[in-house]
Amino acid sequence: MRQFTETEALSGIVCEALGAGVHVVGVDRLRGGSKKGVYRVHVDGPRAASVIVYSWAGVENFWPGAEGIDAAHPFAPASGLIPFLAAQRRLDLLGVRVPAVLLADDGRRRYPADVAVVEDVAGGTLEALLDTDPARAAGALSELAAMLDVMHQQHSQQYGRVDVLERGDKASGVSCEQLVLERALGDLAEAAERDSRIGSVAAPLHDRLQELAARVSPRREHGLIHGELGPDHVLVDASGHLVLIDIEGLMFFDVEWEHVFLRLRFGEQYPALSRPGLDPARLDLFMLAMRLSLVAGPLRLLDGDFPHRTPMLGIAEHNAKEALALLPLS
């Protein structure tokens, strides 16, 4: 049984972040995270009524061990204080709103893991707004599209996570499309073992991936992408403006990878975020690759003790059907 952090453990780091006269009066562990713990800490005192604490303790990570994975690989698990701070700095410099960092600590003086205390953006998620107030959500989608324009128009000849490039390292691989193909072939092999429907057409799916990859032309510039931007990773602040969260995977990559994920997660609202000039060959390859990833990944997560099992099974089930639908009719 996992033992998550408690009020007493968080009090020291929160009081250090907010200053004298602050007392922690309650802690809620927020649902949804699979790589880090996210806690809303309620305080009594002259400062904010609540803050958010990110904890990168090992017990908070539900994913199976990732031994042997190159940490500089663009698809390596993006988690930790260093990638978080690198992404926060880059987006803040661009004027893309992210939670303000009140304290970041990797010294483990007051808390036994890397930790960050950030502002609590109290307006809920864009996902909730899409359900409850479509009129306001339409304006929010326009704002999100503008934020994405700013990000995607940042160019680099190198691809890779921001923290990797900042420290002067080079990401693995020879091209974005080759990395996507290699990952997709691995996901296909894994999904074929776990899902009989995928297994029954593994060879045609393998051939289709190779065929789609062969259509992609080389590219020299890459845009800045969030990498996992669904409406649940966009908060709405008290003024109605948007704030991006779960930013650790921020990287330079083909922007089509972002747009495929946006299309899946935003569904019928995606046209508000779509942009001209996207490469259709990349979109075709990346869509099949993404579908296979969303079969293999959730099933891999469920090898462990991740508590929210039904939604993960639903994601795998849905994406298995969609992957099969991408095979050409014989």
Rank of each mutant, 00 (worst) to 15 (best):
R2P: 15
E8Q: 11
A9F: 00
S11P: 05
S11Q: 14
I13D: 06
A17S: 14
A17N: 10
A17Q: 08
A20H: 10
A20L: 11
G21E: 13
V25W: 00
G26L: 02
G33C: 09
K35E: 12
G37R: 00
G37A: 03
H42Q: 14
D44H: 10
G45P: 10
G45A: 14
V51Y: 01
V51N: 01
Y54T: 01
W56P: 00
W56A: 00
A57I: 00
N61K: 09
N61R: 11
F62L: 03
F62K: 02
G65P: 03
E67I: 01
D70Y: 06
G80F: 09
G80M: 12
L81Q: 11
I82M: 02
P83D: 11
Q88C: 13
R90E: 12
G95F: 02
V96R: 10
V96G: 02
V101T: 14
L102V: 06
R108S: 05
Y111G: 00
V115R: 01
V115P: 00
V117M: 08
V118N: 04
V118E: 04
V121R: 06
T125A: 10
L126Q: 08
A128I: 07
P134F: 11
A140D: 06
L141H: 09
Q153D: 14
Q154H: 04
S156N: 13
D163P: 04
V164M: 11
V164R: 04
L165R: 04
R167L: 11
R167A: 10
K170E: 14
E177D: 15
L179M: 09
R183W: 01
R183L: 13
L185P: 05
L188K: 11
L188M: 11
A189E: 13
A189I: 02
E190W: 12
E190Y: 05
A191H: 00
E193Q: 07
D195W: 04
I198A: 02
P204K: 02
E211Q: 15
R215L: 15
H222E: 02
G223N: 10
I225Q: 02
H226S: 07
L229M: 08
G230I: 12
P231Y: 08
V234D: 13
V236P: 08
D237A: 09
D237W: 03
A238R: 15
A238G: 10
S239T: 15
H241N: 14
V243D: 08
L244I: 10
I245D: 08
E248M: 04
G249N: 00
L250C: 03
F252W: 10
E258G: 09
E258H: 05
H259M: 03
V260R: 00
G267A: 04
Y270A: 03
A272T: 07
R275W: 03
G277F: 06
D284C: 04
F286E: 05
G297V: 08
R300V: 09
T310V: 14
G314D: 14
G314H: 13
H318S: 12
K321I: 08
E322R: 15
E322Q: 15
P328V: 05
